[in-house]
Structure formats: structure tokens, C-alpha cells
Design a protein around this nucleic acid. Structure first.
Lengths: 225, 225
DNA sequence: CGTAGGATTGACTAGGTTCAATGCATGTGG
DNA sequence: CCACATGCATTGAACCTAGTCAATCCTACG
């Protein structure tokens, strides 16, 4: 995911930028295949054997869990340039689905695992990747446990906007309202109303349901606030 | 200097046998110190430099985050035998506090890091440890986003009871109601009412506020349910 | 056009929070 | 040994946010 920690570890070990996870995968490009998935198509399911590591070339992926009672929780969205399936030891703990049309690069896990076993710098990259995932998961824990509907939606928009680098004011929402709801622990109606409220407050503006603009430099971290 | 020493230790102790994190820490026991903290004492704070890895010898630790508005979120509790501070690259992302009197074993991080860098089996252990943490964090995401007050409390009790091994019916709650509330995203009153409701339903019984008994084999996984 | 799927809005309800009071231990000083 | 204070936990009542159920509105696409 966003590789803040990866950078830090990389520097502390005197590595170059190529030794983050992307660089590692790059070095496996001769083993890579390109895969294409349609909207809502399952990439792998919870419990499947983990044979492949993926990197998003285009589109958006959701990592989710379905309950027998029909409830669904989306643990994470993967955007362009982000990788998933790296941490799994044997089986996938979550289901991966294409939010919309998705193109992925697929790397065979055995080859990757061998690279990990043989190179300390690769191991550091994997550790950093997992540390990033853990930090993201714990941030989301905080959002879910301590924020109301409007705050959750705003946190989500800000995180989307700031993924992978510096703040951007214009946010594209590749996923539908139901996906957002299942990620934030809300209903689709509450998400809609929260977005509406943020619009009337002037915190955001809309250029269609899937394109929002964050107004003001008010994107302060709700944790610090 | 540190590097050579750590490597020598690794070899001399036959690290291949010590595949989990506990075994790894065990091999560092000559560098370990014992630390003692009182109830509510801060072990390290968010933002502190990560110099030490801890293992709980006795008592319970909470990993939490305090906001400027006075809200608090407890990401995780650490019980006897569990380790924390392993994942941190440079700074601690969370604050660690003693829930009650706590005794910890402290391992200097530089020595540990050196061991990690030099031994593939140690790296595998650290990766497994982080994968466990990530799985726990994502499970908690699910609890927070998809369950109501009673379900959250029940999930919490079941997880406490089944930590580290097989199901136990009698659960000790080392933490107070406020800690549980801040972990589950509820208020102290809702936790109290949920426990009361579970008692009248017969799902649990109480032998004092800090000792509960889980009745029935009804500890079904709410995810599968 | 007309249809279909998603998004929005409205009215009502329910579950959790808030505020406030009471209960129940433990500990301390007279 | 009792009286009181202190810190949690529990209980009660009013309120409010988000959920539920249902209708309507878009907008993209045959």
C-alpha cells in the first residue's frame, strides 16, 4: 500500500528505492502474467490456496469477507500500483474482487517466496509492506470505533485523495455507495446522507456521484484533531 | 560489533529449532532485562523511538491511541506470553500502557534487528507474527463494522477465552469496563448493559465483574454465522 | 423513448449515547 | 470497628444518530 514505512526502512538499511516491494516485483517481471477481471468478478476467495501475488495495473480491487447471513465487510481497497496477496502464508484470509474492470499483474508465489528467502533486502521490503498494511488496518479500526457517519466518510475521502503521495483535492470514487458503506460499517443511505451533509456544509463539492472535490485545507487528521 | 555478536548467538543456539517469535526472543535472553510497570503507567508513547521489544511476563498491556479531543481507541490487548513492539520500524505507532501491574521482558531492538537481518528463520517468525497481528486487526475491523453491542461484547469474551489455545469457559477480564468500551467502540454503559443482557439470556454467567463464565458451546464464530 | 441499476430523499423505528442517580466494593482515618 | 470517601459498575430515562422500509430521481444504455 502506501509505502511510507517502506521508505523509512529502506533508508535505514541503506537501500535504494528499487528495493521496496514494487522494485522486487519488477525484478520478477519475466515470470509475470497479465490478468483481466470484470466488474464484481472474484479474483480469489477466502480459503483458496495462495499461489499468486498481484499488483494492480488498472482499476480497483476490494478485499472483503462475506458472512453466511449476507453481511459483507470490505477490509481494504487496492488502487493502481498497490499489491496484495503478499502476506498470505498458505490460504487467503480474505476474498478479492474486482470493483470495476481490473487489470492485474500476477506473480507466481513460489518464485516470490524463493526471492524472499534468499535476499535480506527483499525480506525488509515484505516486512515494510506488512507494517503498512497493519498500520492501515489499525487506522481503520480507529475510524470504525471512534467516528460518526460524517467523519467516517470524510476520513475515507481524505485517505483516498492522499493515497500514494501528496494531497489531491479531486477524488475519484471507483466504487459504488454500497462498497463504501460496507467498508465504513454504515448503510448505503447513511453514506449518501453523509455525503449530502458534507456538500451542504461546503466541505466537499460534487462533479457527479463518482467525482468529489475536497474543499478547504481542512483535511486534518481526525486522530490529531 | 552488535552484528557479529548477534550472528554468533544465532549460530551457537541453533536457531533453526526456534521458529516462532518466542523462541527467537528466548535466544536473546542474555540481553533481556525485566521491567515493571504500575497500573495505567505508560510503557511507551506514540511517536517514541522504538528501541525495545517487549514480551508480557505477567499482567496485561493495552495498545492505544489518544486523540486531542479526549477520545481513546484501544487497538489491542496483550496478554501473558504475547509480544509487542516487534513491527515498529523507527517510531511507535501506538501508545502502550499497563492495564494493571505488569512485568515485561525487554529486548534491545538493535540486537533483535541484527538477528532478523541475519537469519531467514527469524525473518519467517517475524513475518508470521505480523501476519497474526494483521489478521487480528482485520477481524476486529469486522467486529467493529458489522456487529451490534451484544455481539461485540460476546466476540470479545470469546476471543479472550480462546487466546493462545483451546476454548476455556471461564474468562478473566483484567481490564475495566472503560477499556472494553474503548476497544469495542462502545460506551461503558453499553458494555455493562450488553453483559447484563447476555447474563439474563443465559449466554454467560458471572462470578464477579472480572470473572465471567461462557455457557453453552454456542461460541460460534460470528463471521461464519 | 423506455428500462434498469444505482443514488438520493423521506418518514419512522430502534439501538446506543448521554446525563444522572444508585449500588457496591475497597481503603482510610477517627 | 464504624463512618466516610473514592472508584467502578450498574441501572434508569430522555435524546439522537443511524438503520429500516419505501418512494423517487437520475443517468446510462438498449
Amino acid at each position: 500500500m502506501v509505502s511510507g514505512t517502506a521508505q523509512a526502512i529502506g533508508y535505514s538499511l541503506g537501500l535504494t528505492d528499487r528495493q521496496n516491494l514494487d522494485g522486487v516485483l519488477q525484478s520478477l517481471r519475466q515470470y509475470a502474467t497479465r490478468q483481466h477481471f470484470r466488474r464484481n468478478e472474484v479474483i480469489f476467495a477466502e480459503g483458496d490456496l495462495a499461489r499468486t501475488i498481484y499488483r494492480v495495473v488498472n482499476g480497483t480491487v476490494r478485499l472483503c469477507r462475506h458472512t453466511a447471513r449476507g453481511r459483507r465487510h470490505i477490509a481494504e481497497f487496492l488502487l493502481v500500483g498497490e499489491s496484495f496477496g503478499v502476506a498470505e502464508s498458505r490460504q487467503h484470509a480474505l476474498t478479492a474482487e474486482a470493483v470495476a474492470e481490473v487489470i492485474l499483474t500476477a506473480y507466481p508465489k513460489p518464485v516470490f517466496d524463493r526471492l524472499v528467502a534468499d535476499h535480506a533486502t527483499v525480506q525488509a521490503a515484505v516486512l515494510a509492506h506488512m507494517a503498512d498494511n497493519l498500520a492501515a488496518a489499525r487506522h481503520h479500526q480507529f475510524v470504525l470505533s471512534s467516528q460518526n457517519a460524517k467523519e467516517r466518510v470524510m476520513s475515507f475521502l481524505v485517505r483516498l485523495a492522499t493515497r500514494g503521495g501528496f494531497a489531491i483535492r479531486s477524488v475519484e470514487l471507483p466504487m459504488g455507495r454500497q462498497d463504501i458503506a460496507d467498508h465504513l460499517g454504515l448503510t448505503i443511505e447513511s453514506v449518501s446522507r453523509a455525503i449530502g451533509a458534507l456538500k451542504t456544509e461546503g466541505a466537499i463539492s460534487a462533479a457527479g456521484p463518482h467525482r468529489l472535490i475536497l474543499n478547504g485545507s481542512d483535511h486534518r487528521d481526525p486522530i490529531a484533531a
